[in-house]
Every structure is written in C-alpha cells, then in structure tokens.
Nucleic acid binder design. Structure first.
Lengths: 332, 332
DNA sequence: ACGCTTGATTGGATCGATCCAAGCACGATT
DNA sequence: AATCGTGCTTGGATCGATCCAATCAAGCGT
C-alpha cells in the first residue's frame, strides 16, 4: 500500500479511502490513485483488513457427509450460487454429525474465521438455530425452521406449491383420478408436498380417498406402493421425489405399460437423471440459485441490522415438463 | 492472548510457544498454559496469525457452473473430503468459465486469501496448469494433465483399470461376447476407459472387432448405440458411464429383455441413481475421498518443498456389484 | 564457590490495512 | 484583503499473533 501511495504521490490513508470511501476523494486524485493501483497490481491484504476491521467477510457452510439414498446433487447448484455471493467469501467445512457441526461453529467463530453461517437440511427442533441465536451469530437457513419457536431467518422451497403445479398440470391434461405417491407421514417436507396435491384435488372437486400411497426412497418399496395406486385405476401419479417416480416407471413396466403413454408420472427435484430416463421425467425443479441468493441477502441485512425481526421466505419451484406426463391426455 | 498469559502467569510469547512449539516449554508450564487456554476458551485469531505468518493456510477450489448433462454429483463427495483436509481451510469460489477461473486465481493470490489451489475437471492443454506453474503457486489437480508438458501434481482415477474390473467381472461370469459402449473417440477419459476393455478382452483371447459402439450421454443416442451392440449378439455390455448404461436398459426393454437376467450391464461412476434403478446397476465407484486426500497430501508436500519434482498418482476404482450384471451367468 | 553452558522465558518490533484526530489548502464571505 | 469554513489529506496508533534478540534461572564442572 505504501508503494501505491508513493507512486500516486499521496498518503497511505488516501489509498485506503480510494478503496473504501471513494466519494471522499477529489475525482482527479481518485483517478491517480486508481491508476497507481492498476499499474502496480495492488490488492488489499485480506488478513490485515480482517484484523483491523474485526470481520472476516466470510460465510461458513457445513457440508455434511453424503447420506446414502438421499440425493446430494441438490447441494451442487446451491453451493455454486452461494459461492457467487458478492462481497463475501465462502468457507466450506465438513462435518459428520450435528454435534460436530456445532463444535466447528464454535471453533470458527472463536478464531473469527467467519462472520456468519448458512445452514442446510434443517430438521425438527434443529439444535443449530438455538445455539446460533443464543450467541447472536448471524445465520440464514435453507429449509424452514421446523420448531415452534421460530428462530432465525430462513428460505425454503414451497413444496406444496410445486406439487400443486404438477397436479394442475395433470388436471389440465384431462386426468381426474390422480394418485399421490408420498413418503411415510412425519417428515415435514413430505407432508407439505402431499398437502399441495390434496388441496388441488379438492379445489377441482376430485377424489382423494384411497389415492395416496407412501414409501421410502427405495426401488422395491416405491414400486410396490406405485403398484397399489395403479390397482386403484389412477391415470396419473404425482410423486414427491424422483426416486419414487422411478418406482412408478418400474411398476408400469411390470404391467407392460409405458410412463407418459399409458399413465402420466411426475417427480420432484429434477435430479440429473430425470432427463436421462426413457421417457424423460417431468419433474419439479427447485429454485436453488434463488434460495442461495436469498440466504445471502438475508444474511447481509442481518449483519447490517442485527436487531431486525427474523424473516422467512418461500420460493415457488418450477415444473419442468417432459414426456413422462403426456403428451397425450390419458383421461379421455 | 494477553489474558491467557496473565492467567497462566507467563509472558505472551510463552502462550504462543505453547501453541506452536510446545516442546520448548517445561511440561509443567505447558500444562498451566493449556489450562488457562481451556478455561478462557481462547482461540488464536485467524487473521492476525495469517498476517504475521504470511500464509493463510487456506486452499482454494473453483466450483464451475453445473454443466447440464454432465453429472455433478461427483463433486459432492470429493468436496466433502477436501473440506476435511486437516490443517487447512477450504475456500470455495464459483466461476463461469476457464478464463474467469484464472482471473479469480489472480485475485485470491493477490489478496493472499489462499496459499494453494485444487483443480478439477482438467482438460486438454488446460491453461490453468501453466499459469499456476509460471507463478510457482502450489496446486494439485484431480484429473491428469492431458498436455505433453506435464506441469503440476495430479491424481486421477484409473479409468482403464475400472473398466478392466467390470470386464473381468463379466468374463468370470462366463460371458465371452462382451460389448463396449463408449463415448465418441477424442475424450481422454473415454478413450482411457475403452482401452481397459480392449486389453482385458485381448488378454482372455476374446473378440473385440465390431463389439464397440459410441454415443454421447443422451438417452436416445445411448439407446440406439446399445441396440447396435445387441444386434451383434453380445451377452454383456460394459458402458463407460451410468447414463450410457441407462441407454442399455432402454434398448433391452424395447426388445422385451431384462438387464441382469438376459444381458448383463455395468456402468461407471456409481451415480446416486444407480441403486435406485430396477434392477440396481452394477457400476464402477470412483475413489473420490482417496483422490481428495491425495490432492491435499501432495499440496502439503509441495508447500513444504516447492522444488520437489512433480508427482502423479493413479487411483484404482472399485466395482460395486449389483443385480444388473448377474446374478445368473448368461454365457452358458 | 565461581564461572559457564544450556534452556526457558521475557519485552519489543513487526505484518498490512483501517480508524482517529489533527493539519493544510482552497474557495467563499464580509 | 483578511477571516472563516469546508473538504481533502496527513501522520500516528491500533488490531492480535509471531519473530527476534536479550534476559534470567538452573545445572554442571572445576
């Protein structure tokens, strides 16, 4: 910095102002300083700046060990968008469990290596929210806070609205007997999505009784559950995950039928394999980039004003229509 | 730190030594300092340490924008393992192109925010290697350096060995006419994998002529290519990607045949959906954790001794056997 | 008992950028 | 023309940990 100051024939403080409060400088001086910075390729030293400012301008994000069976590809786009957060760096650390995650929070905060955290995969009565709240650490969660005391800012995808879009799509294609393939009751996410189907059916005066089945994301269980729905004579199945939709494919093939042609099928998540299937799977795409951007926005606002009330935001996902849900209306 | 020193009744330098050169302290003093650190919950300030030591102990990793069609789930496990690198932090930043990636390198190095980089998805004549090499920036690549001048340390998965394992598995099950479903020639990775099949077939004195087909990772192209192989009367197909294996599934079903039962199929990458398929897909699993660990190991060694010769390492992947490749030997 | 060596401990200077308060120049006002 | 005020610029102190050189205590041999 001293070199830049000398070259621009100003004091070092003026260089600092040129970077942090450019409006304080006379345009002419500012230009001279900027030129010197450019010529010398000067960049402020991160550590020195953090030390003096008492902030790291870094966001921490915990990467949990991949859980088998649970789709992790979701993280990928989200992470990319998070990393693109303007003005902040992203420090990624890995944890094997919830408890370890909080331990690492403690470490990183103690070392002042991060200013805030972004949380992922929130659970029921997630201990992280309270821990961070109690210490007034800024954080934003991707995934709603499933506890009664609604600590913290969060963004989530409106699963009900996503399934609603899928169901509407089926209705518009002429289907009337539309089954829902869900997860066993009790998971907040799954119940939320199921509710989207139920309310859409009711709005259209369509039947819901006996038209739901549930299974975990395993191929055999999903196939059996889908089979049970087909036994009810449904002409369309809305699944709450792509893995479950895959079970529908299997169940249909078992009967010599074809997804899309004989029975319409939709999934959820728009996994990478959705477009690789035959027929390609219609699925609900999560707005991960939007969610990441919203997390960062909330974080920035919270850092600016730590006392503002907590905010929440639901993002509406988008239905990606492919061949598995049509093109022919099967309900004629 | 001053507080800790006061509490332990020593000078601040002694506290520093307790952390960085514990062997310099009398055991008794060390214990007293450690106790004080514990009681006060003291943690060294990252920025201050970086400033003085002139190193950040942070590794940079560029996350490229997800390319549609290309599996990104691979990154997930790799990233987790990278983040677990002992003694180093992981700074993730996002880039949209190769050129932008180098720009960001320049920025981060200028700010002294990172000490080294880990590279991913290396390409032919990758510009990053030379750029980093010219500036003597420590780096390690996941993916071999495909250029003649072999700049840089790298680790890669031995694709040929992986396909070899898959092919051997087929041979052991009694198959003799084993087809290879590859990518169009010209991709280093694809050609390497194809070579693994060829050499295994030759070693066993099995035919290779007319038993290869190629397609990109798109469902229709893959299905047609797989169909061509089936026309040749193969009893087993080794595919160089899971997406291509999916094409085999489709081609078989078109003929009323079943993967695993009628014709054996294997894929590559062990994508999350491999075990969701019906039948579950036998696939070659990449040792991503090992690759990440090896990258970090190489990086640490290079930082310790910047002049040591560049090193390379090939890791052998593991075949995950599921139902698509058996259980019945079809070659009888 | 004394000096000497070894080993642990101490205070002071330093890394690079920012904050603070004081200084200077310039233009406007009377 | 002198004074005042505003706005830009300046040097000095500071953030927290580490490096350096000097000091101090203890242990050993003579």
């Amino acid at each position: 910095m001293a070199d830049v100051a000398r070259r621009a024939e100003v004091g070092k403080q003026t260089v600092s102002n040129a970077l942090n409060n450019p409006e304080l400088l006379r345009p002419e001086t500012l230009a001279r300083v900027k030129a010197a910075i450019e010529e010398l390729g000067y960049r402020p030293h991160t550590a020195a700046r953090s030390l003096r400012r008492r902030e790291s301008r870094t966001i921490g994000f915990a990467l949990e060990r991949s859980v088998a069976g649970r789709s992790n590809a979701v993280n990928d786009r989200f992470l990319h968008a998070l990393a693109a957060a303007a003005g902040y760096r992203l420090l990624v650390f890995s944890v094997d469990s919830r408890e370890q995650e909080i331990e690492r929070y403690d470490e990183l905060l103690g070392e002042q290596a991060v200013d805030a955290f972004v949380l992922d995969r929130t659970g029921i009565d997630d201990p992280r929210h309270r821990w961070l709240h109690d210490r007034s650490v800024p954080f934003a969660a991707f995934g709603r806070s499933w506890s009664d005391e609604d600590f913290g800012d969060w963004v989530d995808v409106d699963g009900a609205a996503g399934i609603e879009a899928a169901t509407e799509h089926m209705v518009a294609a002429g289907h009337r007997k539309i089954g829902l393939l869900g997860w066993p009751a009790g998971s907040g996410t799954g119940d939320d999505r199921t509710e989207g189907w139920r309310r859409t059916m009711k709005r259209h005066g369509l039947p819901v009784r006996g038209l739901t089945a549930a299974a975990a994301n395993r191929p055999d269980a999903a196939r059996r559950a889908a089979s049970a729905l087909l036994d009810q004579g449904v002409t369309a199945i809305v699944a709450v995950s792509d893995a479950l939709a895959l079970g529908c494919y299997d169940a249909l093939r078992e009967r010599g039928q074809r997804p899309g042609a004989d029975v319409a099928v939709t999934g959820f998540d728009d996994s990478p394999f959705a477009e690789l299937l035959d027929p390609p799977l219609t699925s609900v795409e999560q707005p991960l980039e939007g969610a990441a951007a919203e997390c960062v926005r909330m974080l920035v606002e919270r850092i600016a004003d730590p006392r503002r009330p907590y905010g929440q935001r639901l993002l509406t996902p988008r239905l990606v229509v492919r061949d598995s849900s049509g093109p022919t209306a099967a309900g004629a």
